[in-house]
């Protein structure tokens, strides 16, 4: 899941203060949290609301093209287009109007994999080799800060919290507890060494 955040104020101001700017703003979606309120505040403050079009699913090219058609006249005059959306939306607009510089108004942050369509509190990083059979259904890649596959690093504190962030449980302690509940600790003792295959990511782009 992604979170978009407004870029630094100065950075946006320097762009929005020039006259011939047109602005697109995506509705945002559940996969991508968009700080619409913040964006609107800023645009109101800068008196830019009239130069802004709010587009549902900016990432959907066939829809975006229609919006671009509607604003064709203003867009022709614009020397810059600012887009408030995730990185996909910005790229779609840029692709459709390649001759005008398109400037992202947001930074897009990746939050620990995919949380499912309904925003679960578990994460899947889509590594292509599911380890969940070995770990009691708790993903070692997303629940361990170092994505270790062969057990804990030893950095967890006494309460079983991660060395990187004390608010986070050590994934391997959770895995250990879950396997104990299942009576399957012996899985941990099986002496196979797990190593990730990163080639899956490079080739995993549905080429097959």
């Amino acid at each position: 899941m992604l979170i978009t955040k407004l870029k630094e104020r100065e950075e946006i101001l320097s762009v929005l203060n020039s006259k011939n700017v047109f602005i697109f703003k995506c509705f945002g979606c559940k996969e991508v949290y968009l700080p619409e309120g913040e964006i609107d505040l800023l645009l109101t403050e800068l008196k830019c609301m009239e130069r802004m079009a709010r587009v549902d699913y900016l990432c959907r090219e066939e829809f975006t093209v229609k919006y671009l058609g509607k604003y064709a006249d203003v867009l022709k005059k614009a020397d810059k287009i600012v887009v408030f959306s995730c990185g996909v939306g910005v790229q779609v607009v840029a692709k459709c109007i390649p001759e005008t510089p398109v400037i992202p108004g947001c930074d897009t942050h990746y939050i620990n994999g995919f949380q499912g369509l309904t925003t679960q509190d578990v994460d899947c990083e889509m590594c292509g080799q599911c380890w969940l059979n070995l770990t009691g259904g708790i993903c070692p890649i997303t629940s361990c800060s170092k994505s270790l596959l062969n057990g804990p690093c030893g950095g967890a504190n006494k309460d079983g919290k991660c060395e990187v962030n004390k608010d986070m449980d050590c994934g391997w302690v959770l895995i250990y507890k879950r396997l104990k509940l299942l009576g399957e600790e012996e899985i941990l003792k099986r002496h196979s060494v797990n190593i990730r295959d990163y080639k899956l990511i490079i080739n995993g782009d549905k080429k097959e």
Binding site: N150, P152, G154, K189, H191, V193
Partner: peptide, 23 residues
Amino acid sequence: AVVSPGYEPQELQIIKMEKKIEA
């Protein structure tokens, strides 16, 4: 390799130690 005797749960540390020896 290293091992942390005071780590809790200790069993998990022992299991990992064993795996390290195996490796």
